[in-house]
């Protein structure tokens, strides 16, 4: 079924240079690692001041890969928890130490694409409009109701990074804001706030480092960083730069089913390519 979905997606995209010999799907794994100041980071390593991790989760979607023969859309391999064909939840917290979520983590995107090897990836940090505003009580994984749903905004938090820095709790919640309609029937959002990340890498030998510090920017620990997604809020500026959404906000592209296009964005400062550790 998912192969069928993917081939439908492929045929619908004329920009895709499809080589018949490469039409057979290969499964690829793109590994992520959370970092802080260049060192690997998780709930256990960040359990004491000055940086105590509380939460680190984000949604990615609209994955495209560049292989030897050009660019093609890719499909996530669905599991029961973190990935559907369209959306994947990256989860770097395991509920140990100061973290408050649940024990399961998901730090590797598993996807299928008609390429034998991957040279680069492009993906959206966020959830497509058509999926973002559904009733989470009826949604399938990873969009079920829970800590990543944004009850009062009528969508999901695309990013949830929380940490205590120098004794002060800080929260970075990024997602679509300025939405109109009703909670599970949103008609448009003034600020889509989706980021675009483009990375040149070979997933076989390289991985993606996600810099948790980038979401808090240069403000000193002790400053109250409490970003509830509003792009005009200075607490949110670093977060939107971190996911490559800052340039989009300047364009103020209205979001709706009819106009759900992505704009060129500035680089996503939180994402870098590093050598894959064994």
């Amino acid at each position: 079924m998912r192969s069928l979905l993917l081939s439908l997606a492929l045929t619908a995209l004329p920009a895709c240079r499809q080589d018949t010999s490469a039409a057979s799907l290969s499964t690829h794994r793109l590994r992520f690692i959370a970092t802080l100041d260049g060192a690997a980071a998780n709930c256990k390593s960040l359990a004491a001041p000055p940086f105590r991790l509380r939460d680190a989760r984000l949604f990615v979607s609209e994955l495209r890969v560049i292989g030897p023969d050009g660019e093609t859309p890719a499909a996530f391999v669905p599991d029961s928890r973190f990935q559907s064909v369209e959306v994947a939840l990256l989860d770097f917290e395991d509920a140990t130490e100061g973290c408050e979520g649940d024990s399961a983590e998901h730090t590797e995107l598993v996807f299928e694409a008609p390429v034998s090897s991957v040279r680069a990836v492009t993906f959206t940090v966020g959830i497509p409009f058509a999926l973002n505003h559904q009733n989470p009580a009826l949604a399938r994984a990873p969009l079920t109701a829970g800590a990543m749903h944004w009850g009062w905004r009528g969508g999901y938090k695309f990013v949830r990074i929380e940490a205590q820095r120098d004794g002060v709790e800080g929260r970075i919640h990024l997602g679509s804001t300025g939405c109109e309609g009703a909670l599970h029937a949103i008609t448009s959002c003034a600020h889509p706030n989706r980021g675009t990340v483009h990375l040149e890498l070979d997933p076989a030998t390289q991985q993606v480092a996600l810099d948790l510090g980038a979401f808090f920017g240069s403000d000193k620990g002790g400053d109250k960083t409490d970003c509830m997604g509003e792009p005009a809020d200075p607490s949110c500026h670093a977060g939107y730069r971190a996911i490559g959404a800052a340039g989009k906000e300047a364009a103020r592209q209205s979001d709706s089913l009819a106009a759900n296009t992505t704009n060129p964005a500035m680089g996503a400062s939180a994402f870098t390519v590093i050598r894959r550790t064994p």
């Binding site: 009580a137 009062w152 919640h173 109109e180 009703a182």
Partner: peptide, 27 residues
Amino acid sequence: PLVDGLEAQALAPMFGDAPTELGLESA
């Protein structure tokens, strides 16, 4: 302005985190 029904409203106290009210983690 978005909360037009009691069914949808209940999700906010159950799963909301800014602030945590009932503090459920998942369905």
